[in-house]
Design a protein around this nucleic acid. Structure first.
Length: 507
RNA sequence: GGGCCGUUAGCUCAAUUGGCAGAGCAACCGGCUUUUAACCGGUGAGUUCAGGGUUCGAGUCCCUGACGGCCCA
């Protein structure tokens, strides 16, 4: 007898279905075992007195069948016609193996648990339109196994990372996403408004200064794995909203972090992927080989001919870069131009995993200078496939020097560079209470997952990436005046833009 | 921000020089008892992204805009 759910009050799955996935409960069961399964119908083949269908859940698909001989004509006809692709069903039946060798549940009972009102995407062609896949990710997940598998892999990798850090005595903490000053990286922030306080806040661009405050408080080995926001352009290797892992360890220096982060990446590769090489966009990336150490200024000199140990002032650097034919923004600072030069001439060549070390001191106001050469930093990045995957340094822990460097940043900001760091008195004050020597590290989790899963863009490793409002055009039709005003305002803001829109702290 | 390409049925895609807007899958009806994208026959299904223009006639040509993709900045 067919039981059909009519609304959400129907008890369905709570009334005794196997809680194992369909593939575990039935796909691996011995013939003759009776199972009770619930899942979504993804294929339904009617052929006379026999029906074969596949039901799907989180783990995969299992075949079920209906037989006229076993169910009787009336019940068989009713059940066979009741189901359409996309419906959720509960099936009770005995497991058997078909002539073609497929484990199948011969249904003795079938309940429609809920119906689909819309037709699912084509069972063979699937859903391939990029825009549809991203805007309606649930359909992408439903019909594209690769997509489902990529998010499973992401979760396993993140889980392994957490375990690695926990095993090494790191404490996971959470720090504010709404901040009074956007600090910890050179990037433009998103601004939001607190109604009750009547005050604007920034969405964090990095958790760095808060994690350092935690270290001052003696929780001196901490990490945070979470979202950061940068108000910049979209491209295949940048997201406005991205997941970054940052950690800080007291009494470590940047070289400790070089060893540690490599071990962590290899642990993920070994335990989640079972291989230390991956193929990204047809290129084999070998994480198991040594990651060579490349000196930042030596690489810039090698690829651009400009020696940054000699070219130390802004006008000369601007002139030299212009000679290379690169477009130079008038408002760019020395650090901004160095960064531009590196990104244009060096970074595209860094394909295999490598450590880029000893960046010029101007680049990061929160990093410690090398004792041997104060013009450079005790700092490294891991670059893979031309992407900055990791950024880390020995931290500056001297409050006097920190204040001086952040005041410099404020001057640059006043001069028009809006990718400088903001001065936070609270942070300096915390530092004045004494900060242990330490090294911190940031790693772009979305980029790591994209590289390891051969995802063509970062948007493929994020479930619901930011998209433009698809109905914007319709709204414009009904409120043309408002839209015109909005566009004019946006144009003004754009005119003040400087730099390439690409952040220094692109980890 | 610029250049190029795209947007047609729920999904995947056709449509000749500007001349009746189509196919497969899905849905619906019928047939078929071991299928594997099952198969066979039939039926219904469209704001051709939106708005304007040229034309006897526009999915197709022109203009504006929206959204997306690729490349560049």
């Amino acid at each position: 007898m067919l039981c059909m759910a009519t609304d959400e009050s129907t008890a369905g799955p709570r009334s005794g279905y196997d809680t194992d996935s369909v593939t575990t409960a039935a796909g691996a069961a011995e013939d003759g075992v009776v199972v009770r399964l619930a899942g979504r119908v993804v294929l339904w083949r009617r052929m006379g007195g026999l029906v074969f269908g596949h039901i799907q859940d989180r783990a995969g698909r299992v075949q079920v069948s209906l037989s006229r001989d076993e169910l009787g004509v009336e019940t068989f006809q009713e059940w066979a016609r009741a189901v359409k692709i996309g419906d959720f069903v509960g099936v009770t039946g005995r497991v058997y193996t078909t002539r073609r060798g497929e484990k199948t549940v011969g249904a003795s009972e079938l309940v429609v648990l809920n119906r689909t009102v819309r037709a699912l995407p084509d069972k063979w062609q699937g859903l391939s339109n990029v825009e549809s896949r991203l805007r309606r990710r649930y359909l992408d997940l439903l019909v594209n196994n690769d997509s489902r598998e990529r998010f499973r892999t992401r979760a396993r990798a993140i889980s392994r990372i957490r375990r690695f850090l926990d095993d090494n005595d790191f404490l996971e903490v959470e720090t504010p996403m709404l901040q009074e000053a956007a600090s910890g990286a050179a990037a433009r922030p998103f601004v939001t408004h607190h109604n009750a306080l009547g005050e604007d806040f920034y969405l964090r661009i990095s958790p760095e200064t808060f994690l350092k405050r935690v270290v001052v408080g003696s929780l001196d080995r901490v990490y945070e794995l979470g979202r950061n926001f940068r108000n910049e352009g979209m491209d295949p290797s940048h997201l406005q909203e991205f997941t970054m892992l940052e950690w800080y360890a007291a009494y470590w220096d940047y070289r400790d972090n070089m060893r540690f982060v490599r071990e962590m990446v290899l642990a993920v590769l070994d335990d989640v992927f079972g291989s230390r090489t991956v193929t990204y966009d047809g290129v084999k990336l070998d994480f198991g080989a040594d990651w060579p150490e490349l000196d930042y200024r030596a690489e810039v000199a090698r690829h651009s001919g400009i020696d940054l140990t000699v070219v130390r002032d802004l006008p000369t650097l601007r002139a030299r870069i212009a000679e290379l034919g690169l477009e130079v923004d008038d408002a760019a600072s020395y650090a901004g131009l160095v960064d531009l030069l590196y990104k244009k001439t060096v970074r595209p060549h860094l394909v295999q995993p490598c450590f880029l070390v000893h960046h010029p001191a101007e680049l990061v106001p929160l990093a410690r200078r090398s004792d041997a050469d104060p013009s450079r930093l005790d700092m490294f990045q891991v670059v893979v496939n031309g992407w900055e995957l990791v950024k880390a340094y020995s931290e500056l822990v001297d409050p006097v020097e920190q204040r001086r460097r952040l005041e410099e940043q404020a001057e640059l900001r006043a001069a028009g560079d809006d990718e400088t760091m903001m001065l936070e008195e609270d942070f300096i004050e915390a530092m004045e209470y004494g900060m242990p020597p330490m090294s911190g590290l940031g790693i772009g989790i979305d980029r790591l997952i994209a590289l390891l899963t051969d995802a063509p863009t970062l948007r493929e490793v994020v479930l619901f990436p930011l998209m433009r409002d698809s109905r914007r055009g319709q709204q414009a039709d009904t409120a043309a005046g408002d839209t015109a005003a909005g566009d004019a305002a946006a144009g003004e803001t754009g005119a003040r833009d400087i730099g390439g829109g690409d952040e220094l702290g692109a980890v």
